[in-house]
């Protein structure tokens, strides 16, 4: 896919990029300890993260919401997420927990690599393989939030030994949430990743 195709594909998004559509977005970053969830391939890790997000979206419906027209919020009955592995080269929508093999199959299904045209729903972007250690992104209506997984680094754990930590960033609409709410969601997400086992 060349650049022209991409721009054409994203033209709707670019046209939407008017001042009125820009969302006052904030980003908070937390550390996510590596563990069982992060073992294996990058795709496997991403699949576990997506499943954990989908599991917890029921309690945090605001994150799965989207702006509908002028400043009105719309809540989806079955919240979906948009997944962008490899730094968002392709985007896929999914709304039910999947195994990583299924996810991999979904992501490589399209021979052109065009993926789906992103629409409403929470975005999950994987930058961990690209060695990106910090991220701040803007949000454009109807987006309300975005989750980004960053590259790992070494830091001391509670016991004092060095341990690997991933960076987890949540971009969110500042009008809709305080930092505290966003952080609470990230804590819930981290806990469910560390405590529960995802396929």
């Amino acid at each position: 896919m060349n650049f022209l195709q991409r721009v054409t594909k994203n033209s709707k998004r670019i046209m939407r990029m008017k001042p009125a559509a820009m969302v006052p977005s904030a980003s908070v970053r937390k550390l996510l300890p590596a563990g069982k969830w992060s073992e294996g391939k990058a795709m496997e890790r991403l699949a576990r993260l997506c499943n954990a997000v989908l599991d917890n979206l029921g309690d945090q419906q605001v994150l799965g919401a989207a702006y509908d027209g002028h400043k009105a919020l719309k809540f989806a009955k079955n919240p979906a997420v948009w997944v962008g592995p490899d730094g968002g080269k392709t985007w896929r929508r999914f709304s039910a927990p999947l195994e990583y093999l299924q996810l991999e199959a979904m992501l490589t299904a399209s021979p052109t690599g065009l993926g789906d045209v992103r629409d409403q729903g929470l975005e999950i972007l994987d930058l961990s393989e690209l060695e990106i250690c910090d991220w701040k992104g803007g949000l454009v209506s109807p987006q309300v939030a975005r989750i980004v997984l960053l590259a790992p680094s070494w830091r001391p754990s509670a016991s004092g030994d060095p341990e690997k930590y991933f960076g987890l960033v949540l971009d969110f609409d500042q009008r809709l949430m305080d930092a505290k709410t966003a952080v609470a969601f990230m804590d819930v997400l981290a806990n469910s990743l560390l405590e529960e086992t995802y396929a």
Binding site: F3, R6, V7, N10, R13, I14, M17, G84, D86, G87, G88, K89, L125, L127, L130, E131, I132, D134, G137, G138, V140
Partner: peptide
């Protein structure tokens, strides 16, 4: 190094490739 780029125009992976 910090790369600030126009998100509505450039895809993330292209920006990552450039920065790398």
């Amino acid at each position: 190094l910090i790369l600030v780029y126009a998100q509505e125009l450039i895809p993330v992976d292209r920006a990552c490739t450039f920065l790398s």
